[in-house]
C-alpha cells in the first residue's frame, strides 16, 4: 500500500529539514501507529503524504500502490484514495458543510471517471454515516467546521473519511482534545473502516488512542527517522518508560 524510502523533506520557506531519511512500509489492511515525542516530525510526515506545498521533498520516494505520488497535488492524491484526518481541521466560514461534502465526493468521483452522486443517494449516505458517528445532521447545516467543538471537528473528519472511502487513511493526532466518550466514538468510526484493502496510519503522541484502535505495527519517529518498529507491545512499553530509552538505544 505505502512504501516510504529514505525520505528527506524540509520546510520550503526556511529550508529546515524535518524528515531525515525516513523508511516505512505499510501493507494492505494494516493499521500502523506512528509515535514520537513532540518535534519528531509526525505532523510533517502527514502533510508530506497529503502533498502540502509548504514542504519540499529533497530526497527519497513515496510509493503508493507501487507508484510515486511526489508529483501529484493534494487533490490528485485524495482522488487516488489518500486521506488525511487533520489534527486541527480548518474552519471555513461561508462554505456550507453539506455543499463541501457533495463537492468533495463528486470531485473524487469525477477524477475516477465516475458519475456524480444523485442528491437522494448523497443524502442517504450522509444520513447513514452521521448516525453511526452520533453526529446531529443539524451540525452539517453550519458552515464547514465553524463553531464546532474540538470533538465535533474530529468526528466531522471521520465522517468525511467514511464518505470518501479512501484506501490510505492518515490520522494526525486524532485523539488530541478529545474526552473519553468522544475518543470512543471516533475510534469506533475508524475501526469500522478497517478492511483488507485499506491501510490506516495513526499518528499519536500517547498510547491512549491505541487502546481503542489496536495497531498491527508501531513505529517510533525521532528526529525525522523511524528509530524503532515493533508490534502493539512497543506502544505499551513507551507508555510505561517514555521515549528516552528507545531514543538512547537508537542513538
Amino acid at each position: 500500500m505505502l512504501e516510504i524510502r529514505n525520505l528527506h523533506a524540509r520546510i520550503a520557506e526556511t529550508g529546515t529539514e524535518i524528515i531525515r531519511g525516513l523508511n516505512l512500509t505499510v501493507k494492505d489492511g494494516e493499521v500502523a501507529a506512528i509515535m514520537g515525542p513532540n518535534g519528531s516530525g509526525k505532523s510533517t510526515l502527514s502533510y508530506v503524504l497529503a502533498g502540502r506545498d509548504d514542504y519540499e521533498v529533497t530526497e527519497g520516494e513515496i510509493l503508493y500502490n507501487g507508484g510515486s505520488i511526489l508529483d501529484l497535488d493534494p487533490a490528485e492524491r485524495a482522488a487516488k484514495g489518500i486521506f488525511l484526518a487533520f489534527q486541527y481541521p480548518m474552519e471555513i466560514p461561508g462554505v456550507a458543510s453539506m455543499e463541501f461534502l457533495k463537492v468533495a465526493m463528486n470531485s473524487q468521483r469525477k477524477a475516477r471517471g465516475e458519475e456524480p452522486l444523485k442528491v437522494p443517494e448523497f443524502l442517504k449516505r450522509v444520513r447513514e454515516a452521521t448516525a453511526s458517528l452520533s453526529i446531529d445532521m443539524a451540525m452539517l447545516k453550519r458552515p464547514l467546521n465553524v463553531g464546532f467543538s474540538g470533538g465535533e471537528k474530529k468526528r466531522a473528519e471521520i465522517l468525511q473519511m467514511k464518505l470518501l472511502e479512501p484506501k490510505l487513511c492518515v490520522l494526525d493526532e486524532t485523539d488530541s482534545g478529545l474526552d473519553i466518550d468522544a475518543l470512543k466514538i471516533v475510534a469506533g468510526g475508524v475501526n469500522a473502516l478497517r478492511a483488507p484493502d485499506r491501510a490506516i496510519v495513526v499518528i499519536t503522541h500517547y498510547q491512549r488512542l491505541l487502546e481503542y484502535i489496536v495497531p498491527d505495527s508501531v513505529h517510533v519517529l525521532y528526529k525525522g527517522q523511524v528509530v524503532k518498529s515493533g508490534d502493539k507491545g512497543l506502544a505499551i512499553e513507551l507508555e510505561a518508560n517514555g521515549y528516552a530509552g528507545v531514543i538512547e538505544e537508537a542513538a
Binding site: A50, G51, A75, S107, A111, Q160, L164
Partner: peptide, 16 residues
C-alpha cells in the same frame, strides 16, 4: 493557503 490545502486534501481540484 491553509483553507485551500484543506479543500484540496479532500479531492477538490485547485480551481474549484
Amino acid at each position: 493557503r491553509n483553507s485551500l490545502f484543506y479543500l484540496m486534501a479532500r479531492g477538490i481540484e485547485e480551481k474549484t
